[in-house]
Amino acid sequence: MKIDVMISADHINKEEVIGKTIVVIDILRATSVITTAINNGCKEVIPVIEIEEALAIANEGECILGGERKALKIDGFNCSNSPLEYTQDIVNNKRLIMTTSNGTKAIKRCEGAKNILIGAMINAKAVSDKVLNLEEDIVIVNAGTYGQFSIDDFICSGYIIHCILDQNPKVELTDIAKTALFIYKQSTDLSFIKEATHYNRIEELGLLKDLEYCCQKDIIDIVPEYIDGRIK
């Protein structure tokens, strides 16, 4: 078993994801939203890249529209990209149509992979258990921020790798995977995440409770999976 890491949605190499098990990470905040919504009873999440596509799908039946542009709620959408909005009374037994600046793009660009799992800090241990059971080579895809490397996703990658190695120390790591693990070990309290550009953007918007929530470890024990255009 081998683990590799890609640093942003814009760095996804199709040849390196085809037939692989992928873990997509966008902890601030798309994959945290998806994991929370599914955990709270959401029937399925349909990730799309463009706002217009989300609106078109929404016209086909009862659903919730969620997402962001530049970390702000999209006009006409039901919810923003705050996981705290996706409570059980809002999402239970509903479809969520979602579009974000980074996370949904990363998910869609991984199409063709054997498995596409949704990971975040809040379900990292569950993700590690899942990939160990699959016994496949893993590529951890960081959504990043507007095509660029993002500290927050990279540290989350390191934590997932740490959890995997706890159970199987013989797993092979690429150099970038080793680096992610090293960075996490220097900041196991996650304090270094506060240096991330995107973290600071969300902080400037006053969304401190979102940051606190998304930086919690292992509070959810499910692993949503993207199959045929839907996350369940």
Rank of each mutant, 00 (worst) to 15 (best):
V48K: 00
G67Y: 02
I51M: 05
Y86G: 07
C63I: 03
C79K: 06
G41A: 14
S82G: 09
R69S: 14
I49G: 06
N40D: 04
K70M: 14
N78G: 10
L65H: 05
A56R: 11
C63D: 09
N81K: 00
P47Q: 07
S82D: 08
G66M: 02
S80T: 12
T36I: 03
V45A: 14
D75A: 14
E53F: 06
I34A: 03
E85T: 10
N39G: 14
I57V: 09
C42T: 05
L72C: 14
I49M: 12
V45T: 11
I64P: 00
T87D: 06
G61Y: 12
A54T: 02
G66L: 00
E85D: 07
C42R: 03
A37F: 00
G67D: 02
A71C: 14
E68P: 00
R69T: 11
K70E: 13
P83M: 11
I34N: 01
C79G: 04
D75V: 12
I64D: 05
K43T: 08
T36L: 03
E52Y: 09
T87V: 10
E62G: 14
A58H: 14
I38F: 06
Q88I: 10
E50R: 12
E53S: 10
A56W: 02
A56G: 09
K73E: 07
E62M: 12
I74L: 04
I46G: 02
I49E: 14
A71K: 02
N39H: 13
A56N: 13
T36M: 03
K70Q: 12
N40E: 04
T35C: 05
G41P: 03
L84N: 12
C79H: 05
I74N: 01
L84I: 08
I38W: 01
L72Q: 13
A56K: 15
T35F: 04
S80I: 14
C63E: 06
E50A: 12
I74R: 00
E53A: 11
C63R: 03
N39V: 09
I34F: 08
G66N: 04
I34T: 07
F77D: 03
A37R: 01
G76W: 00
E68W: 01
I64T: 05
Y86C: 08
I57H: 07
C63F: 04
I74C: 02
C79Q: 08
P47G: 07
G66H: 02
R69A: 11
E60I: 07
I49P: 01
G61M: 09
S82N: 10
P47T: 09
I49Q: 12
I51A: 06
G76H: 05
I57Y: 08
A58K: 10
N40C: 02
E44R: 11
Q88N: 15
A71H: 01
E60C: 09
T35V: 11
S80A: 15
T36W: 00
N59Y: 13
G61P: 07
C79A: 10
I49K: 13
